[in-house]
């Protein structure tokens, strides 16, 4: 086990972490501002990936594909909010869970109907393919490095948006006291649609970026959705900072655990059972992490009172 392997895996963990952040940011904003739990967030991730794959197939341009993923997911998100979600803000969580679960069924089967059951492929653009040499002698895929940089740039942009702009002030005010901000003359329903579309666009972008590494298929958003839930439970619901911390923690734990646990077990077990025991434990590791954090802080790392 060399240090190059360790560094490579850390970069992989970082890459998973920033993608999870793009998903979790939208979820946590929507919950923080509107008090809504949205299970259909994974569908927006899928919409982004399919839009990107379709546009890349027609035009051959990866950049256009990314723009399409942002636009399609934002449009789908805005539509979802206008038609269904806004009727749910005053409802209890059970109704929100069910209605957004129903949306998943509609989106997944609708996509299967449009594109078929076979996965689509979105190719890494040629000028981003191939490895790049990093200081320290590491060869790392340029595309994955680009994803990390895009993710970090968006995280920085999101922090600026929330902390420095007028929209950001309104979003934070909406989290604190929605009646008051409405009374002060902010069009709250427009703000809600905007926040929802913003979260949807981030999810769609994540779907398109990851779609080029994995395959684009129906249901691809759901494993990521569950991870994003773990992320915001760890980070504290409603906190962007918590989403970032939680995403990096989950990304690292999942990646490093998957690689190193079987090796660790091999020290005191025979290789075959070490591989299977290590893989089993690694698949549960982030949930164990979540349970441990909840035991210490029931409302997450950066959460207020739950």
């Amino acid at each position: 086990m060399t240090y190059i392997l360790v560094l490579e895996q850390i970069l992989n963990g970082l890459q998973l972490g920033v993608m999870l952040f793009l998903m979790a940011a939208g979820l946590t904003l929507v919950f923080g501002v509107m008090g809504l739990i949205n299970l259909a967030h994974g569908s927006l991730y899928m919409v982004g990936a399919f839009a990107a794959a379709a546009v890349a197939g027609w035009t051959g341009s990866f950049l256009l594909a990314l723009i399409a993923s942002l636009a399609a997911a934002a449009a789908a998100g805005a539509l979802m909010e206008l038609v269904v979600i806004r009727r749910l803000y005053q409802r209890d969580h059970l109704d929100q869970v069910l209605a957004t679960f129903a949306l998943i069924l509609i989106f997944s089967e609708g996509t299967r109907w449009l594109f078929g059951s076979f996965p689509l492929f979105l190719d890494v653009p040629s000028h981003l393919s191939g490895p790049v040499s990093l200081p320290g002698g590491i060869e790392y895929p340029l595309y994955r490095l680009t994803i990390i940089l895009i993710g970090l740039a968006i995280a920085a942009g999101l922090f600026l948006l929330i902390a420095r702009t007028r929209i950001g002030i309104q979003i934070r005010a909406g989290e604190a006291d929605r009646e008051m901000i409405a009374a002060l003359g902010v069009d709250i329903s427009k703000l809600y649609t905007l926040v929802f579309a913003l979260g949807a666009a981030l999810a769609g972008l994540a779907g398109a970026l990851v779609g080029a590494i994995q395959s684009v298929q129906v249901g691809m958003g759901e494993p990521v959705l569950i991870l994003a839930f773990v992320v915001i439970v760890i980070g504290g619901i409603g906190s962007i900072k918590g989403a970032l911390a939680g995403a990096l923690l989950v990304g690292m734990t999942d990646t490093l655990g998957g690689v190193f646990l079987p090796q660790l077990f091999a020290v005191f077990m025979d290789p075959a059972s070490a591989a299977s025991a290590g893989a089993s434990l690694a698949s549960m590791l982030i949930y164990i992490l979540m349970a441990a954090i909840l035991l210490v802080r029931p409302s997450g790392l950066y959460g207020g009172s739950a």
Binding site: H93, F229, P298
Partner: peptide, 12 residues
């Protein structure tokens, strides 16, 4: 926990 946390944790 309760509320939304409970939903997400049971799911997880």
């Amino acid at each position: 926990t309760s509320g939304v946390y409970f939903i997400m944790i049971t799911l997880a």
